[in-house]
């Protein structure tokens, strides 16, 4: 059993499990959406005193913070108990494209060039992560949700605005991938 769990999980298992998480949260009386936690953290840091967007009782969102904490633990479990040492099976075309950008495929989940310890000593590396994160945070709040809130919860409820948001995710993602990454790296 453990051996089976250690293998990379196929997409259909993962997709079904994500739908199950969404439904489970609905039965808890909650709505699946991770980026709301970023607002809650701003509120806890005191942003509610200055800005109306963050002026809410964070305790109503405590459940979501606990969910987020659990997901960090999930990362720990996946990298220890369920660890496998085989390299990621990335498509050859992607490996080739990234090589042209100067990013080496190292078989891990994330390139050490961008996320390894050496990044901490590179101003450019830190800036890339900070700006990337800021775009995600700003965009998620502007769009009123992220991948979980729009692509999963919103599309499951057949919300046209969520479809527009997901189309937006892909426009932005393709602009970054095909136009901006070659300039950055």
């Amino acid at each position: 059993m453990l051996e089976l769990l250690r293998q990379p999980w196929p997409w259909y298992i993962s997709g079904a499990a994500i739908a199950f998480i969404m439904v489970l949260l609905l039965f808890f009386g909650k709505s699946f959406g991770v980026s709301a936690n970023l607002s809650t953290m701003c509120t806890i840091a005191g942003a509610g005193k200055r800005l109306e967007l963050f002026n809410f009782d964070w305790k109503t969102e405590k459940w979501n913070l606990l969910f987020l904490f659990g997901s960090v633990l999930g990362g720990v479990v996946a990298s220890t108990l369920f660890q496998n040492n085989e390299p990621l099976r990335l498509s050859a075309a992607t490996i080739e494209d990234l090589k042209r950008l100067g990013i080496v495929f190292d078989g891990e989940l994330n390139p050490s060039q961008l996320f390894g310890a050496e990044v901490m000593t590179s101003p450019k590396g830190i800036l890339v992560l900070l700006i990337g994160g800021a775009l995600v945070g700003f965009g998620a709040r502007y769009a009123g949700g992220c991948t979980s809130g729009h692509a999963i919860s919103g599309l499951s409820n057949m919300q046209l605005p969520s479809l527009i948001a997901v189309i937006g995710f892909f426009i932005g993602g393709m602009v970054m991938t095909h136009l901006l990454l070659p300039l950055l790296f």
Binding site: A143, S162, I164, I167, F169, I171, G172, M176
Partner: peptide, 14 residues
């Protein structure tokens, strides 16, 4: 949704 989504997508891909 469109503008916010696009900004989000830029960060997601980066």
């Amino acid at each position: 949704y469109l503008f916010g989504g696009m900004i989000f997508g830029l960060g997601w891909a980066l």
